[in-house]
């Protein structure tokens, strides 16, 4: 919108031309398309009203504003290399997410971000066995095979990562394994993507906790398909996102297969109200998850925190 628009500015207020210092003011994006993933999950495609869309890395999140209702932390579900719109996949679980899921094409949604740590895919290109720091813990960089394990809508922040990994696979040579678990067949998100990833050479397994008429696939927890997945634990990095209990058992299954906990990355979630380490809501032990997370290596204190959740 034009910045010099003739709207009276109340005394003591000024328009946010210097928005760089006003970290809590969202940038308006418009809904350009929407896709229903399940009965309560919707993917919104967003394009900025003015300027170009933000740069981000897979695994990061944005604060999305439903104007007049409030704001919620939502993972970016598109891939950075995609020339298409910025996508967020939202589950309708509260007032703000309900409004976001109800947004129509043409509606405005506020976007702040991107915030937080990412899956750390950048190191793949280096092809050098260096170390890097993620969440304060030094661990081996991402190379070799990659196992992506998702529970339910936990696939959203991993979707962009899978596309990036498949695009790099031609010169990296590592395998991409995707294990997806859902409560029942109706809760499987990104079905088209799952088929596309299989065609692109990924080993994709889908399992449901509870079957339904017409389902001919695997039934069981995601850890049960993980046991049959093909990867070399000594040269594999795992990217895991889902409910905490799912991540706990997935990490245990991976370490049981011989994986170094430092090469298992999990995406953690807490209440978030600012994204810039001011509000204190996203604390998890020593971490402020908006700043130190959401992606952290499943080593040391993180494993400890996931073993005994708060109560």
């Amino acid at each position: 919108m034009p910045a010099d628009q003739g709207v009276a500015v109340p005394t003591g207020l000024r328009r946010g031309k210097d928005r760089g210092t006003r970290a809590l003011t969202p940038v308006p994006y418009r809904v350009v398309s929407r896709r229903r993933e399940t009965d309560d999950v919707t993917t919104l495609s967003l394009a900025p009203v003015a300027g170009v869309a933000m740069a981000f890395r897979p695994g990061q999140f944005n604060m999305l504003t439903a104007f007049g209702v409030g704001e919620a932390a939502i993972s970016i579900s598109s891939a950075p290399s995609s020339s298409g719109p910025l996508e967020h996949t939202v589950r309708d679980v509260g007032t703000v997410t309900h409004s976001l899921c109800a947004a129509r094409v043409g509606d405005l949604v506020g976007v702040r971000g991107p915030f937080g740590t990412d899956w750390g895919l950048a190191e793949v290109d280096d092809q050098v066995d260096t170390l890097h720091t993620l969440g304060g813990t030094t661990h081996a960089h991402l190379r070799g095979d990659v196992v992506v394990v998702a529970g339910g809508i936990g696939l959203a922040p991993l979707r962009g990562a899978v596309y990036e990994l498949l695009a790099r696979r031609s010169h990296d040579g590592g395998g991409v394994v995707v294990c997806v678990g859902a409560r029942d067949p109706s809760q499987i998100v990104f079905r088209d993507d799952l088929e596309e990833w299989t065609r692109a050479g990924a080993e994709v397994s889908v399992t449901v906790d509870v079957s339904a008429p017409g389902w001919t696939g695997h039934v069981g927890l995601v850890t049960s398909v993980l046991g049959d997945a093909h990867f070399d634990p000594s040269r594999t990095t795992a990217l895991v996102c889902g409910p905490e209990i799912m991540m706990r058992f997935t990490a245990r299954a991976l370490t049981d297969r011989g994986m170094d906990p430092g090469r298992i990355r999990v995406s953690l979630e807490r209440n978030m109200q600012c994204g810039v380490a001011w509000c204190g809501h996203c604390q998890l032990g020593p971490f402020l998850l908006c700043r130190d997370g959401p992606v952290l290596p499943y080593a040391g204190i993180v494993a400890h925190l996931l073993t005994e959740p708060e109560r």
Binding site: M1, Q5, V7, V9, P10, G12, L13, R14, R15, G16, R22, L24, T25, P28, V49, F67, G106, L108
Partner: peptide, 18 residues
Amino acid sequence: ELWRATRDGGDLTFSEPD
């Protein structure tokens, strides 16, 4: 107060306290 916004047709105009 962090910001306020007024609706102007399909657009929003933001203002922030000095």
